[in-house]
Amino acid sequence: MSQRVPVHVEVNGRGYDREVEPRRTLADFLREDLGLKGTHVACEHGFCGNCNVLLDGAAIRSCLMFAVQAGGRSVETVESLAGSDGELDELQLAFTEHHALQCGFCTPAMLLTAKQFLRENPGVTDARRIREAINGVICRCTGYQQIVAAIAAVAQAQQTAHSIRIETAPPVRVAQDTR
């Protein structure tokens, strides 16, 4: 398993060329080969979502994908969120304001997953839809309530900033809505 193959990946806007074992996961590639330790692996089996990163703008499990599969594609990690001087972005500020993190381990994945939701559904403050969007990320500390509040606060700000009209169509039904 030791033969290595070249891979080119764009991460946080910067191109990286590396040689990796084909079996190396994207998570290990980001953490160990690129030194981007903000991506956290908690279950290693795709069930907890703590390793979520954005691949071409959409959240995926970096523990269930091989680095070579990300070849030629664009990855965003938590390191992309704050400004170069470390200044927190709007969502990060909302997380601290609403106490949406305790131990901080799931936080990078939660932020990125929420980021995608807010990009694709600007201004949507509906708690149910936010809970659906982050359902694939397990947080053991917070009970989620303050995370939902933080995301909704950013959505609220989007409404104000961009005079967004909110569509009220119901979301796709999810499991156990069996009545």
Partner: peptide, 16 residues
């Protein structure tokens, strides 16, 4: 098909 797909995994796993 759409109804069933709504129950599959999580958004992140459905994208892959």
């Amino acid at each position: 098909l759409r109804e069933a797909a709504g129950f599959v995994g999580y958004p992140e796993t459905r994208r892959r």
